[in-house]
Every structure is written in structure tokens, then in C-alpha cells.
Design a protein around this nucleic acid. Structure first.
Lengths: 348, 348
DNA sequence: CCACGATGAGTTAACGATAACAGTACGTGG
DNA sequence: CCACGTACTGTTATCGTTAACTCATCGTGG
């Protein structure tokens, strides 16, 4: 039953069966008005009988435009990026586009070939979460199709992007901890070379300055890349003589590593961090999380992209920068602070 | 800078610049031996200068085979499916295929059009996690390309599939709880119309029979579709006069809902369930989780598919069924059982 | 000195669909 | 009765690439 290479029937085959030319078949399928009802029915019957489907590849070639947009994310296993992908797909579908997805696995060196591959497949536009700080290959891609960056801004590139309120969110969450009287807040961050890492550190720092406190450099750990490295860094901090009174984590994986370290050490500390995550509400820890809608980043990025596609001819407006808002969510009791067994279940 | 519709330079343009025909450009890019070194260099120079990239759409049309495979999942936001997608991508890339991804959002009625769309885009094969029990549309797709099912078996279809050891895993996890002396184990399951729901219930039941216990029907809740419905069902069970002594959940979302209910009720019960999830190890609950490698499902499915693609011509072997093994993981203390505050931190 | 193979490069046609153009058949009004 | 519009359908050429074929040039051996 499985068709062989080069696959199924063509319009010509359908036409032969319906005793018309391929052109008439094309017209029927395009809902062109100038076809008699009798012919139309014969064609549809033939289409059904043969299980015919239009060859989108041939249409793309003839009509220009593949109906596909490319998405490159750094780590699809992270719920953040899978939600972003869903947002992209949602809007893309709405406008009749399909999504070709690549995962760079956070390996910046693989990104250029992924992008070239997508361009080769004639995607009409690209949405990219850039893995590294070098973005020269993106400039190359922009010679072919419009590119929108997500979650990280362009570096030396003139293109649209969608960002989170990194600075503001970090500042606000840190301020919450400071307002509760915690002055020794450790900072657990991803590599500062990444925009989000740098911005969120800036927010952490700004919150301290606003209350006239200078952060202790001994409490700042950067360059953490996953939950495991974050866990190790946290354990080190906890074993220091002058232990931090609270933690600030720049993303969900780092928060999870820190939480694991706290759990293993049998210590409860207030923790603030970027990204909400599953079950954060049932940990019984005093959490202050900067939450935002990852889907929305994908949706906005796709809208920016499609807007450019629909105005290909007109002079492109200046590159735009859209920001997705954050809001702070708090879980667990925030009255107590210091050590002690955690997980006080809320009232039944 | 952004190119207009119909986009970039063609082989003809490259040829003009390099003072050769398009055919020679094609030969150079294909690494055909019969081209002089001088010509080869001129062509490469022209390619670089123009930023030329081969049009994969035109190649697909000419050569047959788009180099793409389609993946349809039910919910990309579930880490299970995003990992599955990563597994697909990994093997697909290895064999030079790209992945066109669609998300059915668990709406079975949308699935046919998603699949048709992928077929239209000339995917060479499909990997599908079917959303519903009706699979007639898959038979239609199989007229065009080979189809491999993932996580759920074919119903009235002759095609390859990759499954998890649903029955075995459920039986084993339930048996763990029973071995500890819990006899009243609640069952919280997804709709029984789904294969996984039915199989896992069967495993739960079989484990009871093996120790000569008949499950109490009053403790069985099926048809749960997400964490919220699972949470409500669990709260109901907990308020029953004859409360369950342990819980069995058929997937990660249901486990999470149940855990949320336990937390809100201030009750700790042993919980068994399918799928491991982030932070399961730090909840301090006695958990018995059936874990397996979702990536591996994707990898195996892709291998089955590509195997068929590479043997398109030869008589297809009978449809194959591959099973991915499960293993039971246990977290938290399993000595105590009954009520009481949870989260006893492990030693530092 | 010429036939012939090797070498390098161009021409033609086709993949499948479709825009643009070109009929053909019919009816209507002058 | 014929010019002309209307309704329907067929032909041709094209999108960008490439398999298969053709063609020109050069060197070599009989």
C-alpha cells in the first residue's frame, strides 16, 4: 500500500481519470469559478478515488513561498522553549504557515548549519533563540529571509526581537527579598556572556543599590549551565562560614539545582528566581518567582515575522523590540526566615 | 537587505557571474569530478559573493523526496513529548532528514488536517502520537507515506509502532505498594479509551490479583485529562469515609494533580505513578515512579521509519512493534505510612 | 595524419503545479 | 446571417535544479 519514491498521483493522473486536462484539475482544486458543475464533480470524484493530494513542493516552486517558517531553539527539553514553540505554532497556523523546528542543544557552533539548512528548505522567515554571542551567521541568513530573535537581543544586527523584562523582573524579585530583611542574598546565574545572565545580574544589583546595600561578591556565582552545576555551587555557598540568607536564581534549571541542594543539606531558605515551574507551589519553600508567558514570546515573535512577510515589498520599518511582561508570584510562607525543616502544609 | 518574494540568486545567476552554465554550477556543488579546478574555484567564488544557497524545494521536486519527516504530537508542552521530539530530531538529523512538527493539542478532530498538511508538504514519512481512537485518517496517509505510531498502538491498521511497557510498569509499581502492605490503593487514570489508560489499569489490576486482593471500585477514577481534574478527583477520594492508603497515577500530569491535592489537604500518602518528573526527588513524599526514556521512543520510531524509507522498493516486512523498557524509581522514605507532615529532609 | 578516447562544459527535458494566453462552442443582438 | 461576448477548457511556458545526452577540444597511438 505504501507508495514508492516520487510518490502518488499527479494532477495529470487525476485529469486523465476525469477526462480533463491537468489545468482544469488545478482550477477545481483552487475553487476557480470558471468550471462547470459537471466537470467539477468528475474531478472531485477522481481526486477521491486516487487519494490525490496537491504537491506542495511543486506549488512552492511555482508560486514562490514555501508556507514554512523556521524555528531554532536552544533546548526543546526545557518547558520554556517547548511553550515558546507552541506559541509560534499557534500563530503560524493561524496565518497558514507551518513550522520547521531545529534544536541547537545550546551548541552555538551547530547553529549556523541548522539555519543554513532551514534557509535551504526555503523557509520564508526565521525565529531564532541564539545560542551564542556571535551572530554573524544570522546576518548571512538575513540576506535570504527576515529573522526575528526571541529571548535574546541582536548583537550588531538590525532585526526585530522579543524579550522578557529581564532587568525589571530580577530587580523586583530581589527587592521582595530585601524588603523582608534579607541582606545576604546569593546570586546563582547562567554565563554572563548571555544577555539574560547579564541583565538579571544587573537587576539583582540595582535592587541592592536602591536600598543602599552593596552585594557581597563572595555570594555571586555565575556561569552555571544546568541544574547539576547550580546544585554544586549552592552546596558550596551553604558550606561557607558566612552563609547566605536567601538565594536568587536566574532561571528554572538553576532554581531546581538550588532547591535540590537545599533539600540535601536539610536547610530551608527563601528563594527567588526567574521562571515558574511545575510543582513550585507544593514545595513548601518560600519562593518568589518571576513568571511570564513563554507562549507569548513565541506568539509575538511570529507576529513580528509575519508582519514583515506581508510587507515584503514596502520599505521595512526600523527594527522593533517587543517586551513580554513579567509578574512576581509568591509561594509558601514568607513570615519565618532562617533554617529549619520546610514543607509546612497549608491548611486542609 | 531582506530579499523580496521568490528570494535569492539562482544557479543561473551564479553561472553568469562565474561565466559558466547553471549545469556546471550544479556539478560543482554536487562535487561532480568532471569539472576543472579553475572552473570550480570561479564557481565557489561566485557562490560566496552572491551568498547563494541551493533551493531545496526545486531539488526536492526534481529528485523526489523532500528530506523531511513529519511528527505529530498531542501536547508539546508536556516534557514527555518534547523529549520524544528531541529523540526524533536526533536520529532524523543523523540520516539527513529534517523534522516538520505539528501539535494536535490532544484534539483528535484536528489531527486529520494536520496530517494532510504534512503529506502535502511531501514529508517522506510520518511519526504520529494518535490523539483519538479513530485512526481512519492514518490509513489515508499511509497511501502516501509510511507511518509509525508512537506511545499508542495502531487500531485496525497495519503499521509499525513503538510502545512503553505500560502493563508491566503499572503492574510493577502497584506491586511495590502492595508489598509494603497498602491494600487500599486508589487508581487515578486518564480516559480508558486511550490505550495507555486501559493498559495501565490492567497492570494495576493484575498486581492486585497476584496477591489475591480485589481492587475496590470506589477507589478507581478514570477519565482524568489534566492536573486540575486529577486534583479534584484526589480531593474527593481523600474526603471519602474510607480513605485510600496510597495512590496510583497513570501519568505525570495526574501525579502532579494528586500531589497538589495531598499538599492542600495536608496529608502524606505513598504515591506511585507513570513518568518521572522534575523535582520528584525533593518533594519528600514516598514516591514510586515508573520511569522510561521518552527520547528513546522518538529515536526508535524514527529508526523504524527510516528503515522503511530505505527499503521502499523491497517488499515491506510485516509491521513491527518495539517496546521501550521501564524501570521503577523510588524517592523518599518508604518505612512509614499513613498521615503526618511530609518533607523530612534527608541528612546533609 | 587521422581515428578515437578522455576531458570539460553546454543543451534539453523533466519533476508537478499554475499564470497567462489561446482557443472552441454557444447564444444574442444588430 | 454574422460579429461579438460569455462560458468553459486546453496549450504553453515557467519556477530552480539536475539526469541524460550532446558537443567541442585535445592528446595519443597506429
Amino acid at each position: 500500500m505504501t507508495a514508492r519514491r516520487g510518490s502518488g498521483p499527479t494532477m495529470h493522473d487525476v485529469g486523465k481519470l476525469a477526462q480533463v486536462s491537468a489545468m482544469t484539475v488545478s482550477r477545481v482544486l483552487k475553487n476557480d469559478p470558471g468550471v462547470s458543475e459537471a466537470t467539477r464533480e468528475r474531478v472531485f470524484a477522481a481526486v477521491d478515488k486516487l487519494g490525490y493530494r496537491r504537491n506542495q513542493t511543486a506549488r512552492s516552486l511555482r508560486l514562490g513561498g514555501s508556507g514554512m517558517i523556521g524555528l531554532v531553539v536552544t533546548n526543546l527539553a526545557n518547558p520554556f522553549y517547548s511553550r515558546l514553540a507552541l506559541g509560534v505554532q499557534e500563530v503560524a497556523t493561524e496565518y497558514g504557515f507551518r513550522m520547521l523546528l531545529s534544536n541547537s542543544a545550546e551548541q552555538a557552533e551547530r547553529e549556523p548549519e541548522l539555519i543554513d539548512g532551514l534557509v535551504d528548505h526555503q523557509v520564508e522567515g526565521l525565529i531564532v533563540v541564539p545560542a551564542g554571542s556571535r551572530q554573524q551567521h544570522l546576518a548571512a541568513a538575513m540576506r535570504h529571509v527576515p529573522v526575528v530573535l526571541a529571548a535574546r537581543p541582536p548583537a550588531g544586527l538590525d532585526t526585530d526581537c522579543v524579550l522578557v523584562e529581564d532587568f525589571h523582573g530580577a530587580r523586583e524579585a530581589t527587592a521582595c527579598l530585601l524588603a523582608e530583611g534579607h541582606t545576604r542574598i546569593a546570586f546563582l546565574g547562567n554565563p554572563p556572556a548571555l544577555y539574560t545572565g547579564a541583565e538579571r545580574l544587573r537587576g539583582y544589583w540595582a535592587a541592592h543599590e536602591e536600598v543602599g546595600i552593596e552585594p557581597d561578591n563572595a555570594l555571586i556565582r555565575q556561569g552555571l549551565v544546568d541544574a547539576a552545576t547550580a546544585e554544586r555551587a549552592t552546596l558550596e555557598l551553604l558550606q561557607q562560614a558566612d552563609r547566605p540568607a536567601a538565594l536568587f536564581c536566574t532561571n528554572n534549571r538553576i532554581s531546581q539545582g538550588a532547591i535540590r541542594a537545599l533539600y540535601k543539606a536539610g536547610i530551608t531558605l527563601p528563594l527567588a528566581g526567574f521562571d515558574d515551574f511545575d510543582l513550585s507551589d507544593v514545595l513548601g519553600l518560600p519562593l518568589t518567582l518571576v513568571s511570564y508567558d513563554a507562549d507569548e514570546i513565541g506568539r509575538q515573535a511570529t507576529r513580528l515575522l509575519i508582519d514583515r512577510l506581508e510587507h515584503r515589498d514596502t520599505a521595512p520599518p526600523a527594527s522593533r523590540r517587543v517586551t513580554v511582561p513579567t509578574r512576581v508570584i509568591r509561594y509558601g510562607s514568607h513570615s519565618e526566615h532562617g533554617d529549619g525543616p520546610g514543607h509546612p502544609p497549608a491548611g486542609a
